[in-house]
Computed example of a mutant assay.
Amino acid sequence: MVGQLLILLLVLLLIPFVIGGLITEAEGHDGKLLFRWVSGQFLLWAGFQLLCVPLILRERSFGSLVAAFWGYIAALLLLAAAMEIKRWPKKRKSAVWSFRNRFRKLQFMDLILWAAFWSILLFQLVQAVRMAYADGDDAYYVAVSSITQNSNTMYRILAYTGGGTELDIRHGLAPFPVWISFLGRASGMSAAMVAHIALPPVLIAMTYAIFYLIGLRLFEEKDGRLPLFLLFTELLVLFGNYSIYTPENFMIARSRQGKAALGSIVIPFVLLLFLILLKELREKKRISPPLYLLFCAAAATGCLCSTLGALLICMTVGITGLLGSICYRRPGILVPLGVCCMPCVFYAVMYLIL
């Protein structure tokens, strides 16, 4: 069990952090460590979507997907390692030292607020595992993950009865449960245990990491407001279970489902990218290619989580890009942003056709 958890930590924390070094130029120095981790995970999710859907449509085995995705991970790790070696002589300041310097400047009240934030976060992570329960949608989504891991097929066995069926193309275009199956195959842990026990703390922590990065953009000159912003977010989550359909309920109790990841992780990350983009436009800087790459990765990840993600990501990117081009007189950003939306357009067309 300990070895399985260590492998999951390697796949969910260390590997995304290393791969995130490919796009560190898309973010400022503050929060760089968290930004690397989150961005690296989005690059992995996007690659999984691009590899998984064609193999599902071709009715290939789950084992072939696992082999292809490990090859994708290895290629990104080699590229990230090469870039780190190239950048190493030019580094002058570590992000860890930047964090320590920021910590030393905090006032006593700020320390109390941060302590309260970490305490509530730890409470939520523990409760997400200790009080895990079977949601009604688990009858399908967790069953798909378990069947995929054990049968070596993808969307060819009916999750409700275990009988054979035709290829389920509708759900196959958003194969987030198959990603959970990959985690189970990689670690040796059952997909049900991954979904209910191992995965929720990581995804909840990633949600708060994204809100922390958003807070750095909103309150970069007044750090005392950042812990208040995060505490307010935690309170909304703690008291948001007044309906099974609230975003707070999806985040805590249903984090293992793709639509929960879409609302709690993907859309907030897109909003973070918008803040970075608009700041670059306001300061009349050249938009870095890694930022556009992250928009593409977010678009593909939205499709991985839910077919509805294609519509939501396209809509938000289109509206923000249009307003940004008008307000800052930069119509040139519309073309690359439109290209970034192509994964959503492609999967939406496939959904309508197939």
Rank of each mutant, 00 (worst) to 15 (best):
F346K: 06
L262I: 06
A192G: 06
P331F: 07
R217K: 12
L12F: 09
L33C: 02
P290D: 08
L352N: 12
G258I: 08
N241L: 08
L173M: 10
V194H: 04
F219V: 02
S325N: 07
L22C: 02
I112N: 01
L199H: 04
G184E: 03
C340G: 10
I204L: 11
G240H: 08
N152V: 03
V317I: 15
S190I: 00
D168E: 04
L218Y: 03
L238W: 09
R256L: 07
F123L: 14
G21T: 09
I23G: 06
F274M: 10
T320L: 12
L22S: 02
E27Q: 15
Y160A: 14
T161C: 08
F295L: 11
A134M: 14
L277M: 11
L113V: 04
C327M: 15
T320N: 13
G324S: 07
I56T: 08
A115E: 09
A186T: 06
Y155V: 07
I147L: 15
S264I: 05
G136A: 11
F35M: 14
A300C: 02
T165A: 13
I313Y: 14
A348P: 07
V194I: 05
L218P: 01
E221H: 12
I197P: 09
L76R: 10
C327T: 12
T161H: 05
F211C: 04
C344K: 11
W114I: 10
L323F: 15
D110W: 04
A75T: 10
W118M: 10
L311G: 11
A116R: 02
L294A: 02
R225M: 08
W88R: 12
W114S: 06
F99Y: 09
L238Y: 02
V266Q: 06
A74K: 05
I147F: 09
I56K: 05
V202C: 04
M154I: 08
G263R: 10
Q257R: 07
L238K: 04
R286H: 09
L203Q: 13
G321V: 08
F274Y: 05
W70L: 14
L13E: 12
L293M: 08
P289F: 08
S190K: 01
K91G: 07
G188H: 04
L278T: 13
T316C: 14
I353Q: 12
E25G: 05
R104Y: 06
A81S: 14
F35V: 06
L77K: 09
G332S: 12
P343W: 09
Y245V: 02
I56W: 00
N241P: 06
F229D: 04
I204A: 01
L111I: 14
L294F: 03
A115Y: 12
G20D: 02
V178A: 03
A80W: 01
L111F: 08
D137A: 05
A81G: 15
N241Q: 13
P177I: 11
N101D: 15
L213C: 01
A348Q: 14
E27D: 12
S264G: 10
L311W: 04
A139F: 05
G63Y: 08
I265N: 05
A195V: 07
